[in-house]
């Protein structure tokens, strides 16, 4: 029984990170109606960015995480202008193709640089013992950081001028221009934030598991599941959706083999899409 509880706790900890990753995806969709297919590539890039910072500069992985976030933001800001700006407001297929192209380029370059063999970042963090089970310390820290980042994003969106401007542009771009809000710049910033969050999520995952440049793909898929659980374009729902996905993973993993996880996840994905197309959580849409 303790084993199952520990597994559920571990699932929830991971779920917080799934949630954070999904927030990056859902923020971009919510603000500019772009489904970012480079999301997984950015997660993977966040993993490698952490690896490089730690192995080259020798800094503590947790101190490197914010650096990865800032780097992700800057990269997202640039990608917006290069690949996304021109397809905003056009047919959805255009932005899917544009971001898919970005993904292919990043994964391609990453494969050249780092091949597809696994890397890992060493983290020493005492765990928490429950009976003969242990909850790894790095999982606890990663989950706490993920939740802190999600809360910080919430505070930013609801209590700062720029954050409110992002919500205004998401709500009505035309009207926000009429109010003097430079909406294009705001979109670029929002895209940067979405990518920055994806990169941070990737860097947190890198403190837990070995990874390759292709690892982002499975987290991208999880982000889609989470987003569907939480309601597309709803950051608070994404965090709850992530926790729910983690809960499900944690509850089934003691009983079935790992290969069943994606099967269960995607069956859930389809069921939720059919039964609750707007997501399970109608929360977090303002006060």
């Amino acid at each position: 029984m303790t084993g199952v509880i520990v597994s559920i706790i571990n699932g929830l900890l991971l779920g917080a990170i799934y949630g954070l990753a999904a927030i990056g995806l859902t923020l971009i969709f919510g603000v500019m109606k772009v489904i970012n297919l480079a999301h997984g590539a950015m997660i993977a890039l966040g993993m490698f960015a952490l690896y490089l910072l730690v192995s080259w500069l020798g800094i503590n992985p947790y101190l490197a995480v914010p650096v990865v976030g800032v780097g992700g933001f800057l990269m997202g800001f640039c990608i917006y202008w290069i690949a996304v700006h021109r397809v905003i407001g056009r047919a959805e297929l255009m932005s899917l193709l544009a971001t898919f192209a970005v993904s292919m380029i990043i994964v391609g370059v990453g494969t050249v640089l780092w091949s597809t063999s696994p890397y890992n970042v060493q983290v020493d963090m005492p765990g928490l013992s429950i009976g003969r089970y242990t909850i790894p310390g790095n999982h606890i820290v990663a989950a706490v950081v993920a939740i802190l980042v999600a809360v910080a994003l919430y505070l930013f969106l609801y209590y700062t001028r720029l954050g409110k401007a992002i919500r205004a542009v998401a709500s009505n771009r035309q009207a926000s221009e009429l109010m003097g809000i430079p909406s294009t710049r705001v979109l670029a910033i929002a895209f940067g934030i979405g990518i920055g969050i994806a990169a941070v999520a990737g860097s947190l995952i890198a403190t837990l598991f070995p990874f390759t440049i292709l690892s982002g793909a499975s987290y991208e898929l999880k982000s889609f599941v989470v987003t569907v659980l939480g309601g597309l374009g709803n950051p608070a729902g994404a965090l709850l959706g992530g926790l729910l996905l983690g809960l499900i993973e944690g509850s089934v993993s003691p009983f079935v083999s790992v290969s069943w996880t994606p099967v269960i996840e995607f069956s859930l994905f389809v069921v939720i899409l059919i039964l609750f197309p707007a997501g399970l959580f109608r929360v977090g849409r303002g006060r």
Binding site: R167, A168, S171, N172, Q174, A175, L178, G286, R287
Partner: peptide, 11 residues
């Protein structure tokens, strides 16, 4: 603008 165009989700 015509039709008010408020930010409906915002206070």
């Amino acid at each position: 603008p015509e039709g008010r165009q408020l930010f409906g989700d915002m206070t």
